[in-house]
């Protein structure tokens, strides 16, 4: 029977983790909204993504501040230290994922009046459909401390990378039409942003593995 001898510290650590998970939920929604704004050209979704990112940035600063206080006051060790290291990484990663969602939403706004090519749009929607479960899986693994399931993430990332690498081919095919080419060229940036989000979900999975094992491992990634 173990008793927690540092209840205040562990309460602060749990609270920090909860805030990080709150941030993760928001980022997951932002990515979904950003891709939807691309398809629907719904400017209210763009606005919502941008305002959500303001909140994510606020949480990012709050987590950093509380993280510093805990390190200075509590000097965590063992799994607590690993949790602190993982939270710091997640905080950075999630903030950048939020930025990618904003990038996509801004492109959706900027290209709203341009002609679109349905194949490219379908590929981007497919990429969105692939990365959202990756975000959810990585966060669920973190919450459940599941170092086994997070090993699935690199495999989940493979089709995202394949779609991203194939995007140029579709863009080139739009070269005959200047306004369409302008739209398609911007979509390359969207594709790249979604590919990054997938990579970042894998990064979170690596943090779960570190949290549970203490070993730093880079998961094997698609390089084809």
């Amino acid at each position: 029977m173990t008793t927690d001898q540092r209840p205040e510290f562990h309460a602060a650590l749990n609270s920090l983790e909860e805030t990080t998970m709150d941030m993760a939920d928001r980022v997951e929604k932002m990515v979904g909204m950003a891709v939807r704004s691309l398809v629907t050209s719904d400017n209210s979704l763009v606005t919502e993504v941008i305002s959500s990112d303001d909140k994510v940035d606020e949480l990012y600063m709050d987590i950093r501040s509380r993280w510093m206080q805990i390190m200075a006051r509590q000097q965590p060790m063992g799994r607590d230290l690993r949790m602190m290291a993982a939270i710091l990484e997640l905080n950075n990663t999630l903030e950048r994922m939020g930025d990618q969602a904003v990038n996509i939403a801004r492109i959706a706004r900027a290209t709203a009046g341009l002609p679109r090519e349905e194949t490219i749009l379908a590929k981007l929607v497919e990429m969105g459909d692939l990365v959202k479960p990756m975000i959810r899986t990585s966060i669920d693994c973190f919450v459940r401390r599941d170092a086994d399931e997070c090993l699935l993430l690199p495999a989940m990332d493979v089709p995202v990378d394949v779609l991203n690498r194939g995007m140029w081919k579709h863009v080139v095919e739009c070269g005959h039409d200047q306004p369409l080419l302008e739209w398609a060229t911007r979509m390359v940036l969207v594709s790249r942003a979604l590919e990054r989000v997938g990579d970042q979900a894998v990064d979170i999975g690596e943090q779960v593995a570190f949290l549970m094992t203490g070993d730093h491992h880079e998961f094997t990634r698609y390089t084809g």
Binding site: D4, Q5, R6, P76, G78, L81, G214
Partner: peptide, 16 residues
Amino acid sequence: FTAPSLKETEDYITGR
């Protein structure tokens, strides 16, 4: 102090 092998050690250094 970062990743002990045994839970008993981990519990001690983390105050549990």
